[in-house]
């Protein structure tokens, strides 16, 4: 079937501002939006810029605004979206070209919450054991693929680009609620700052945008509660 796309194109070397371009390509209803982009790039205009790698919702590189909401292009079926399919880059990042955005500030925030196991006490001789109940506490937040869909769907982030953002909080949650980790205080201190969790206004756009179905607002709420009660449980 013929599928119509409208893509927000922008090449800072040539254009003063972004503009919409129309493309119609032949696709199956069971194809993904990413297949459409590949076809457009392959058959119509090789200059269009976007990221993708796995094409199976695993790597997190093709988050973009599809019909007004952040989605992974490789997960959205053509038959499930209204045409013309309007595609734009994620909001709040600098656009390098077309759908390609500068993710560096995003990863900088990710690094700021120290996303790795921190050990303060003596290293044990054997494996660090954990009960299934303790593992369950942060199971949801282990699923994050750092696509950026949540952070760039968040009005608090659009208003303040320095807000650490839902993705970094999800990643911090994964360690804060891990019984084996000993860097909780440090991470909680970072998230207690003005541009930390308190900038979250429970808008829930992140939950709608997350391709992994993570309960992002819940995770942020749990961190807020840990800060208010001064303990993690």
């Amino acid at each position: 079937m013929d599928v119509r796309f409208e893509i927000l194109r922008f090449d800072p070397a040539r254009d003063a501002k972004p503009h919409w371009e129309d493309y119609t390509v032949e696709l199956e209803p069971t194809d993904r939006v990413l297949d459409g982009l590949e076809k457009i790039k392959g058959e119509r205009d090789g200059s269009i810029g976007y990221r993708r790698s796995c094409a199976h919702g695993v790597c997190g590189s093709d988050a973009m605004k599809i019909n007004g909401r952040n989605r992974l292009a490789c997960k959205v079926l053509i038959r499930s979206v209204r045409q013309p399919i309007r595609i734009e880059p994620m909001m709040g990042f600098t656009v390098h070209k077309d759908l390609l955005v500068d993710m560096e500030p995003f990863f900088k925030k990710y690094r700021s919450i120290r996303p790795y196991l921190i050990e303060a006490s003596e290293r044990p001789d054997a494996e660090r054991l954990q009960s299934p109940e303790n593992r369950e506490k942060f199971d949801d937040t282990t699923k994050c693929i750092l696509c950026g869909a949540c952070t760039t769907s968040c009005p608090s982030f659009w208003a303040d680009p320095n807000y650490v953002g839902p993705a970094a909080i999800v990643q911090a949650h994964r360690f804060i609620f891990d019984s084996r980790d000993e860097g909780k205080e440090e991470r909680l201190k970072i998230l207690n700052e003005r541009e930390g969790v308190w900038a979250c206004r429970t808008v829930f756009n992140c939950v709608d945008a997350c391709p992994r179905g993570i309960q992002v607002t819940r995770a942020i709420g749990e961190v807020k509660q840990a800060l208010t009660r001064g303990k993690v449980d």
Partner: peptide
């Protein structure tokens, strides 16, 4: 650029 459509939560917040 178009408006972010969001979901119920966004409109409740607005």
């Amino acid at each position: 650029m178009s408006l972010y459509r969001g979901g119920i939560g966004q409109w409740a917040w607005l």
